[in-house]
């Protein structure tokens, strides 16, 4: 008997997340010999991110791919890779954690809420940079006192405060207006892709302080309730299909990231390229407040400590 599954993402076709979803869906189709069909609903047509997460848990939605900061509303520990200890970390460092036992532990936390992560796990989109600004800023000191729009995340807001930056959590839909009208002087804790994707140089962004301050990843998700209603074989196919997709997704995302900086520079954005010393100095300064952030954002201190240990060992 044939199965129809629905996959919902908020990003438009052509976005790395959608491309990965399409590839996953195709592979599922191939491996099942057409037995399982996946229809993709892009651009938040079906669910916005918060709703998608709830719908996965309830079984109203079958599949999705979500960004770690969004998912951390449900499972705060997913913010672990955004913490100061990941300042200056590489994609390999993130994989070292998430592809191992600690990653499995994280996915198990999600599974206890009814959402499963297939084998193969996450793919990275980009490191967050502390600031993209209208006026020049090439050091942490120069950023102090600026008002920057940040994604809605308690962890990010806390880090910004500790850096003496006025982080204002702003919905994406308001950012361009506020930039052009001057309520904000830039954006905090976003990626090169956000800038190039939104052509934000046209809204006034002209400088990037690219300090590689923490990471965000995309995580493929399956509704546990829906999966439990499938046969073992069907579940295996969906799982295998992602294992066959994730490598491509990681490579493609890395390629796109390299391309994003070039695009931004072509459009007149100046990169500050802060030194490794400056970044590690800031990391040390921020580590002093990390415990408070962990506590305030509902994360598990023991889990964070074990991640910190593994990261240092790497």
């Amino acid at each position: 008997q044939s199965v129809n599954l629905r996959l919902s993402v908020e990003t438009p076709p052509g976005h790395v997340r959608n491309l990965a979803a399409e590839r996953w869906a195709e592979t599922i189709g191939e491996l099942s010999g057409g037995d399982i069909a996946v229809e993709i609903f892009p651009a938040g047509q079906l669910y916005n991110s918060a709703d998608a997460i709830r719908a996965l848990a309830s079984g109203a939605l079958d599949l999705s791919i979500q960004a770690s900061p969004t998912l951390s509303r449900l499972e705060p520990n997913l913010s672990v890779i955004t913490l100061p200890m990941f300042f200056g970390a590489s994609a390999e460092d993130v994989r070292g954690i998430l592809d191992g036992d600690l990653g499995d532990e994280l996915w198990a936390m999600l599974e206890s809420r009814g959402i499963m992560v297939p084998s193969g796990g996450h793919f990275e989109f980009a490191p967050n940079n502390t600031a993209y600004t209208v006026e020049p800023a090439d050091s942490y000191a120069a950023l102090e006192g600026r008002t920057l729009a940040t994604p809605p995340s308690p962890v990010v807001v806390a880090i910004m405060n500790a850096m003496n930056i006025n982080g204002v959590a702003t919905p994406r839909t308001e950012i361009v207006l506020q930039l052009t009208q001057g309520q904000i002087e830039g954006m905090g804790s976003v990626t090169d892709l956000t800038i190039s994707g939104g052509r934000l140089w046209e809204a006034g962004i002209a400088h990037a302080f690219n300090d590689n301050a923490g990471w965000g990843v995309y995580i493929p998700l399956m509704s546990a309730r829906v999966m439990n209603g499938l046969t073992d074989e069907q579940r295996q196919i969906i799982d295998d299909a992602w294992s066959q997709t994730v490598g491509w997704a990681r490579d493609y995302a890395a390629e796109e990231l390299a391309h994003a900086r070039a695009t931004n520079e072509e459009n007149g954005i100046t990169y500050a390229d802060p030194s490794d010393e400056a970044v590690s100095e800031m990391r040390e300064r921020m580590l002093a407040v990390q415990d408070d952030i962990v506590d305030a954002s509902g994360m598990n201190a023991d889990f964070v400590a074990r991640v910190a240990e593994a990261l240092q060992g790497a």
Partner: peptide, 19 residues
């Protein structure tokens, strides 16, 4: 302008909202 629908279109189409 301002227009919320244009902002939404801009986000989906990855087009510049000021434009």
């Amino acid at each position: 302008p301002p227009s919320l629908s244009m902002i939404l279109f801009g986000l989906i189409a990855e087009e510049s909202v000021p434009r």
